[in-house]
Every structure is written in C-alpha cells, then in structure tokens.
C-alpha cells in the first residue's frame, strides 16, 4: 500500500497499479471536496435563490417548460433551456427581431375558463402579473388562476419594504399550517410597498435602472399560455385524484382547492407555481 508498509515491493507493476489507484481516489475525493467548497461559497455569497430556481427549473416536466414562442405559433416545438429568462436568450432575441410587431396590435381582454387577462399587464410564468405604473414602479399581483388556487391557502408572508427581489427568486409566501407555498418574483428591484388580496396587489417594486422586462409574457402569448396552464392543472388534478376533469367551456371556481379537499394541494401548488 505504502513504501513503509509490510508487503510493499518496488516492482513496476505494483507502483503503476497503486499510482493509478491513488489518482482515482484523489479524483473522487477531490471532486467531492470541490463540491463541498463550492456549496459553502454558495451559502455565504447569497446565491441560494439562483440555485433554488436552477434546481426547480431543472426538475420541471418538459410540458411546463414550453418556450413562449410556441404559444404564439412562432415555433412549432421548443423546450426552454434558459430558466424562462428571455433577456439572455438568443432564440428570443432572434424571433423578436423578425416579429417585432407580433404583439403590438393586441388590445383585447380575454377570459379562458372565466379568468380575465388584462391587456395592459405583463405575466410571469410563475403566475404573477406586472403592471408598469406612470411613476416607473412596478405593481405585482397574482394572476387569476393563482388567485383561485391560493384562495384559501392561509396568510401571505410578504417581504419587508426595502428588501430586494430577484427575477425567479422567492417573491413572497403563503403559509397554511405547516406547509408553505412560494410565489416567484417576476422582476428585479426594491420593494417600496406591500399590499394583499384586499388591496388588489401584493407588491410595488422600484426596478431602478434594472427594468428589463423582456422575459414577461404579453399580448397574444398570454391567452394560449393560460389555456395550457389550465390544462396542466387539469392533468395534476387527474394525476393526484381519481381523474378529476374541469368542464370544457366552464368557469373555474373561485376556490378550487376547497372543492377538492382530498387532493395533495401542496404538491399541486408547487407544480403550478414552478416549485418542483
């Protein structure tokens, strides 16, 4: 094993074999050690939000990761590999360059399954809407589907005024007993005011100079996305229960969870709000 251990001989084969063995051991433990050091750095450098989103996004089923340009019919099929961050996506930049006016003509308010989509709002894939105010602040609320899913999910735990939000980091939480549901932040910025369901919004954020909102859905993309999300909800309801189906052409109930109390809502909400 080692030169000073009984049984060791200075034979070529012995030395080669043990050298290879030590190299392999060094690679295994070295790699593990590097992982531990990196994890420590992640913990101390505040990258946890980014990592959590990376891990969650990676675990999402491909159906939930469909590229936004599939909704608008610009691409037949593509799965997002960019964590829904279109700001750094080459595909998005390329398509926007060609179809710049695709969404500009959209003005109507549509209501898939009775869920009203506001044409002056932008939507995040984590089921929040964003409205740009005249004073350049951004108002954030839950989209109508999430409102109906979270109707009876306890109290909202909102961030403190002055705290910073990051796109796809934790925005705020809903706590119900021991379970907690996370809502993703749709934008970067500093929280300047907090509201609640009664106020009609949850957060007001000052994006500062960082007001790039290209990653948010708008115009003609929103209706097909919302329709697909309703389909995804139906699948999750069916998978978790005994094949529950939402009626085609019907209106979604105000409090969906209360209608199916036997289902594992912690899991369903996590899936719908992109928390794998």
């Amino acid at each position: 094993m080692l030169p000073w251990i009984y049984g060791f001989t200075w034979q070529t084969g012995n030395v080669i074999f043990l050298s290879i063995f030590y190299c392999v051991v060094a690679v295994i433990f070295g790699s593990f050690g590097i992982a531990v050091i990196r994890a420590y750095r992640d913990l101390t450098s505040g990258r946890l939000n980014e990592i959590r989103w990376h891990v969650d996004f990676d675990d999402l089923p491909e159906f939930a990761k469909t590229c936004r340009h599939v909704f608008s019919g610009e691409i037949e099929y593509q799965v997002c590999r960019n964590g829904f961050d279109c700001r750094s996506c080459k595909t998005h930049s390329g398509i926007i360059g060609v179809h710049m006016g695709a969404n500009a003509s959209y003005t109507g308010n549509e209501s898939p399954s009775g869920l009203t989509i506001q044409s002056d709002c932008m939507y995040h894939r984590g089921h929040t809407w964003v409205h740009r105010e005249s004073d350049r602040t951004l108002t954030i609320g839950l989209d109508p589907l999430a409102e109906r899913l979270l109707w009876s999910r306890g109290k909202a735990e909102l961030p403190e005024v002055g705290s910073r939000l990051h796109v796809n980091g934790a925005g705020w939480y809903f706590r119900n007993g021991g379970s907690r549901v996370r809502v993703l932040s749709p934008v970067d910025g500093e929280v300047v005011a907090v509201g609640g369901r009664d106020e009609g919004f949850y957060l007001k954020v000052n994006p500062g100079d960082d007001s790039d909102l290209r990653h948010l859905l708008k115009g003609t993309e929103v209706y097909p996305w919302m329709t697909r999300e309703i389909e995804r909800l139906e699948i999750l309801l069916g998978a978790d229960g005994d094949g529950i189906n939402l009626a085609d052409g019907g209106v979604l109930l105000d409090d969906v969870a209360a209608s199916y109390p036997e289902l594992n809502w912690e899991n369903i909400l996590a899936q719908m709000l992109l928390e794998s």
Partner: peptide
Amino acid sequence: FLAMEYELHRI
C-alpha cells in the same frame, strides 16, 4: 442541502 445537491450535480 440545496447547495450541496446543486454542486454535486455539477461534478
């Protein structure tokens, strides 16, 4: 654990 899981995945 989250950070460790992420970093182990990278190696």
